[in-house]
């Protein structure tokens, strides 16, 4: 009986380790290949690099538009998330903490957006953004991502804000605090965990998005990382060492961030699917 239990434990560990290898091995091979020369990749695909050379990384960083793509992705992602948080807090604070006519209706109006795949409205968006002069701009992308992210932000933040006790703001009001001060210095610090969830919930999909830049950004200097990758992969199609280095550089920031914030990432990305 003990023996059987021990073998079950071993079997479970073997299965889990097996899946770990399936996940990590491809990532490792991508990283290792980035240190090799193209010839070495073909001659010695599985082994460690003969020389740990950073030449490929240097080439990617200095000879391609990678730094530019990075900067663009940072700008677009930061701008979108900021816009989502500001607009999301404004709407959900009013909806959660004040009673007024049409409150419930407005809440449902925002929520309806959760079901709307904005990708399918890309034709009207294209015509509209062209007319507004927002194609080939980062601002245009930010507006789209903010509109996409707003419904979930309102949903998560409203739910959170409703749980905060009334006494807090009443006490502050008696002390003579303005409505804005109550929101800024009392409510916002309390909803910080929810803000982090909303932030990550949007951060990763926006950083990774490919579809909207593909449609709205043609100018090379404005391309974000996923779109830039398609340019890069075409340019260096036969130079695998450089390709692997580029892919590794593209993956690295997210992986590093994930290693440090894995708990928040997992909670943030599964928010909505996991009932907490």
């Amino acid at each position: 009986m003990r023996w059987r239990r021990l073998s079950t434990v071993t079997l479970i560990q073997l299965l889990l380790i097996g899946n770990t290898v399936v996940i990590l091995y491809p990532m490792m091979m991508m990283g290792l290949s980035a240190f090799k020369s193209t010839r070495e990749i073909f001659r010695n695909p599985f082994g460690l690099p003969e020389v740990w050379s950073l030449a490929n990384f240097v080439r990617v960083w200095e000879q391609t538009n990678f730094p530019l793509y990075f900067r663009n992705s940072v700008i677009v992602t930061a701008g979108s998330v900021a816009l989502i948080l500001v607009l999301g807090v404004m709407a959900s604070y009013a909806l959660a903490r004040y009673e007024f006519r049409g409150n419930e209706l407005l809440y449902l109006f925002f929520l309806a957006g959760i079901m709307m795949p904005l990708k399918l409205a890309v034709i009207p968006l294209f015509i509209q953004l062209r007319a507004m002069g927002l194609t080939n701009t980062h601002l245009g992308l930010m507006c789209i991502y903010a509109a996409e992210g707003l419904p979930a932000a309102v949903f998560i933040l409203t739910g959170f804000l409703r749980t905060l006790p009334r006494d807090l703001e009443n006490a502050a009001r008696i002390d003579g605090a303005s409505e804005f001060q109550i929101l800024w210095s009392i409510m916002l610090p309390l909803v910080r965990p929810a803000l982090v969830i909303v932030g990550i919930y949007n951060l990763v999909p926006v950083w990774n998005d490919f579809f909207f830049p593909l449609v709205f950004v043609q100018r090379e200097s404005l391309k974000t990382l996923p779109l830039g990758l398609t340019v890069f992969m075409g340019q260096y199609a036969t130079d695998w060492a450089v390709l692997y280095a580029g892919l590794t550089i593209a993956a690295l920031p997210v992986i590093v961030l994930y290693v440090f914030l894995s708990r928040q990432f997992i909670a943030g990305l599964t928010a909505g699917a996991v009932k907490g």
């Binding site: 950083w207 990774n208 490919f210 990758l229 992969m233 390709l243 997210v254 990432f265 990305l269």
Partner: peptide
């Protein structure tokens, strides 16, 4: 195991697609 299994979820489909295409 949880952290490892979830890792690829954070990576762009474009990136993963090109990686596997190679």
């Amino acid at each position: 195991y949880q952290v490892v299994f979830f890792l690829p979820v954070t990576l762009a489909f474009v990136l993963v697609g090109f990686q596997w295409k190679l």
